[in-house]
C-alpha cells in the first residue's frame, strides 16, 4: 500500500487546488468568461484496486489527454473526460453553435490545449511548492473506451501506483467533471513522499 498520511494527502490537495486555480485563470483569459476549477479529492491507490467506479468510468467513450513528466519523479498524467463532455467543453470554449460532427474536427486540438493547461498548471504548482523542476512531453489526445483505458492502466506493471484527482470544471453555467490520473512507479511515489516531507518539515 502507499505510505501516504492524511497530512501528505492534504498537502497534495492544497497543491492541486492551487494548480486548478491557475488553470482556471488561464482558461478564463481564453474563453473571456468566468471559469471555475476545483479538485474535490485526491486519492493514491494501488493500480490493482482501480476499477471503473474509482474513475467513474461507467460507460461510453472517453477523451484522454496525456503528458509524460520527468524529474525527481516520473509520471504519466492522463486527464479523462467522457467524449460527450469533451465535446461540450470544446463547444463552450469556442462559443459557437456547431454540430457535433463539426466540433469533432476541433476536438483533438482543443482538448490537447485544455488538457495541457490543466496538466501544466497542476504540475507547475507542485514544482513551485515542493521546489523541484519537471520536464514534460507535449500533450497527446486519444479517444478510448473505459475498458481500453483500464486495460492500459493495468498492463503497465512498473507503475503500480495511481494518484487520482477528481476535477470539477465549470465554464459559464455548465458543470463538467473529469479525472486526472497520474501513473507512478514505486520509486517515483517514494521520491514524491520525500519531497512532501521536506516541504512539511519546513513549515511545522
Amino acid at each position: 500500500m502507499s505510505n501516504l498520511s492524511e497530512l501528505h494527502l492534504d498537502a497534495l490537495a492544497e497543491i492541486f487546488s492551487i494548480g486548478a486555480g491557475r488553470a482556471a485563470l488561464s482558461l478564463s483569459e481564453i474563453v473571456g468568461d468566468e471559469v471555475h476549477i476545483s479538485v474535490p479529492s485526491v486519492q493514491v491507490i494501488n493500480v490493482e484496486d482501480i476499477n471503473a467506479t474509482t474513475l467513474s468510468l461507467n460507460s461510453g467513450r472517453f477523451g484522454a489527454v496525456s503528458q509524460y513528466f520527468s524529474g525527481p519523479f516520473n509520471a504519466e498524467a492522463v486527464l479523462l473526460f467522457t467524449e460527450e463532455q469533451a465535446l461540450k467543453i470544446v463547444s463552450d470554449m469556442m462559443g459557437s453553435q456547431m454540430s457535433l460532427e463539426e466540433l469533432a474536427e476541433f476536438e483533438h486540438e482543443a482538448m490537447c490545449e485544455l488538457g495541457n493547461i490543466i496538466l501544466n498548471a497542476c504540475l507547475s504548482a507542485m514544482a513551485d511548492i515542493l521546489h523541484f523542476t519537471l520536464e514534460s512531453s507535449l500533450p497527446n489526445y486519444r479517444v478510448a473506451s473505459a475498458d481500453e483505458i483500464l486495460h492500459r492502466l493495468k498492463e503497465n506493471s512498473n507503475q503500480p501506483y495511481v494518484m487520482v484527482l477528481h476535477i470539477d470544471l465549470a465554464i459559464e453555467k455548465r458543470h463538467t467533471t473529469g479525472n486526472l490520473v497520474f501513473l507512478l512507479s514505486s520509486t517515483s511515489l517514494t521520491n514524491l513522499v520525500i519531497h512532501i516531507n521536506q516541504f512539511l518539515g519546513s513549515i511545522s
Binding site: I30, M94, C112, E135, L138, P139
Partner: peptide
C-alpha cells in the same frame, strides 16, 4: 501568457487554432 508560462515553468505549451 503561454510564452511567459513556458519560460517560467519550463513546460511545453500548445495553442490550438480552435481556441485562438
Amino acid at each position: 501568457t503561454a510564452l511567459k508560462n513556458t519560460l517560467t515553468h519550463r513546460l511545453p505549451v500548445v495553442l490550438s487554432t480552435a481556441l485562438h
